[in-house]
Design a protein around this nucleic acid. Structure first.
Lengths: 140, 140
DNA sequence: TATTGTTATACTCTATAACTATA
DNA sequence: TATAGTTATAGAGTATAACAATA
């Protein structure tokens, strides 16, 4: 593949991903602000300290304190003392948090499924392959 | 294709697009805040009124007034009176605005091209097909 | 009277700096 | 002395309500 067509693939694919992302955000509106959903997302299947969560979200520590406060008040996240290091806290998703996250995902995925509704079996197979490729390169 | 695998494709593809989108935003940092870039983007190849731009960005009219003020001060957007309707303004990209937009796109696309660097010819062809499919369904 | 855009005001999310507690 | 987290304060971005100008 030529350099020119790599460039144009990169441009077009980036735009397509951003369009999907943008429309998911706008059309599959959640009951929670995006940054709170995003924070919850990071706590799926694992516990993190506030510092780790701030780093994952590329946000300052004080910002994350506020976000976490809000999520704790809503009962979506539990904040406990760290067993070994008294300076740290440990954040985990509560059952309510898991439920909210599941519901938000559901709305977004329903929207996405609607988008793909009219495609043929072959076209969906192409998208499946592409999805796997994207996830593969995103690991790096 | 079964309903179950459509659902799982929708979920995985949505996540992949959002991951790309997020990493583009985080790693290909622009000199302009995202909402300003997004506003400029809408003015490519066309002129819009502030109201139209607000609607396109799903943002309130006063918010868009502030954003536009900022872009006008930076010399990236020109705001002129509407020729026919005295209530409206007309927004256009200035040459400086076009330059900024081109530069932002360049950085993001370079990042994206880097992501795709290691893929084979066949894998890239799959992504090209998938990109076209995505753009096709996004038209609706 | 309805519409377009702006101004006034308030709320949320963000950041940097200062502070507290622990290592 | 360094690190994790919080509190204090300020700066963007957003929204709703009120206003001015035009249709």
């Amino acid at each position: 593949m030529s350099n020119a067509s790599l460039t144009s693939l990169a441009n077009d694919l980036r735009h397509a991903c951003q369009r999907v992302s943008r429309r998911v955000r706008f059309e599959a509106t959640a009951e929670l602000p995006p940054h709170q959903v995003s924070a919850l997302w990071n706590l799926q299947h694992k516990t993190l300290t506030p510092g780790e969560l701030a780093e994952a979200e590329r946000v300052s520590a004080p910002s994350m304190t506020k976000t976490v406060n809000c999520l704790v008040e809503k009962g979506l996240v539990a904040r406990a003392d760290h067993p070994d290091d008294g300076r740290c806290k440990v954040l985990t998703l509560t059952p309510a948090g898991e439920t909210v996250l599941r519901e938000v995902g559901q709305v977004r995925n329903d929207w996405m499924a609607g988008l793909l509704q009219g495609l043929s079996k072959e076209e969906r197979a192409v998208l499946r392959q592409a999805t796997d490729l994207l996830n593969q390169v995103l690991e790096n």
